[in-house]
């Protein structure tokens, strides 16, 4: 037996944490499994894994000593992060290519997950411009574009503030309602108000789980794929409820 080999249990604990973090921050299933197996392979272990939406089960196997390490881990609900997607995936390759020690791997992992994300105010501005551009793409005029910009700021600011305290679905309903209600001010002006209303809530569309869900299904991870699509559909229903509440109030002006 190789005396320098990293202990099975410690490698298993790290991979469980790494895998659940990757699943939690919105990375498609096949990449998560590939990256985790790569790390196990780097330490000369074999890994088998089953991934579900809320938990995962993994077994690490040492073929020399016939030892097994099993773990069932909850997947945390984390904000989507493409930065973590890139860096954690690159970390698995680095571990594989440069045979990092477990200590060095843990340090690098800690640095990646502790790195600050983009400032919420900066995100707010960028999303405001993005949704306003969306309005232009759908044929809205400049007045509608300005209204959509300010509606998006109001809706997203509310979402950022409420996300900490309130249920996820309620947050989506309220944000969609506020954003579309602000956009309904376009009815006062002679402008493309239906385009303004339509685009005001689009910043809420859960594009990442929608696309990840389809990727998972296409790649054969049907369970997680459908779970992601179901989650995304529920959020879309919430957006529809928020938008519908505004439309109920202003529908007479729209027909």
């Amino acid at each position: 037996m190789d005396k320098n080999k990293e202990p099975l249990v410690e490698v298993g604990e790290f991979i469980a944490e790494y895998t659940s973090h990757m699943m939690g921050c919105g990375i498609h299933t096949s990449r998560v499994i590939r990256s985790s197996k790569r790390i196990a392979e780097a330490y000369s272990y074999h890994m088998h894994i089953s991934v579900f939406q809320k938990s995962l089960i993994l077994t690490l196997h040492d073929s020399e000593t016939k030892e097994y390490h099993n773990a069932v881990v909850d997947i945390p609900a984390l904000p989507i992060s493409f930065e973590h997607n890139s860096e954690l995936s690159a970390l698995s390759w680095e571990t594989y290519d440069e045979r990092l020690s477990l200590k060095a791997l843990r340090e690098k992992y800690g640095k990646i997950i502790a790195a600050p994300s983009i400032h919420p105010l900066f995100v707010l501005l960028l999303v405001g411009f993005a949704n306003a551009s969306f309005c232009r793409l759908f044929g809205g005029d400049w007045i509608s574009t300005g209204i959509v910009f300010s509606s998006t700021l109001a809706g997203l600011y509310l979402k950022q503030r409420m996300s900490v305290h309130l249920n996820h679905y309620l947050v989506f309903i309220l944000s969609a309602f506020i954003a579309s209600l602000c956009a309904s001010t376009s009815l006062i002006f002679d402008t493309t108000s239906d385009t303004a209303l339509a685009t005001s809530v689009l910043f809420l569309v859960p594009g990442v789980p929608l696309i990840n869900g389809v990727i998972d299904i296409v790649e054969g991870h049907t369970l997680t794929g459908f779970a992601r699509l179901t989650q995304a559909s529920l959020l879309i229903v919430c957006i529809a409820i928020g938008l519908a509440s505004t439309l109920f109030l202003v529908k007479d002006s729209l027909i």
Binding site: G26, P79, I80, S81, F82, E83, H84, S86, E87, S117, I118, F122, V123, L126, V127, G128, F129, A130, N131, S133, F203, G207, V208
Partner: peptide, 9 residues
Amino acid sequence: GFGAISDPP
């Protein structure tokens, strides 16, 4: 803008 919500590098 929509990318910024998902915190890309």
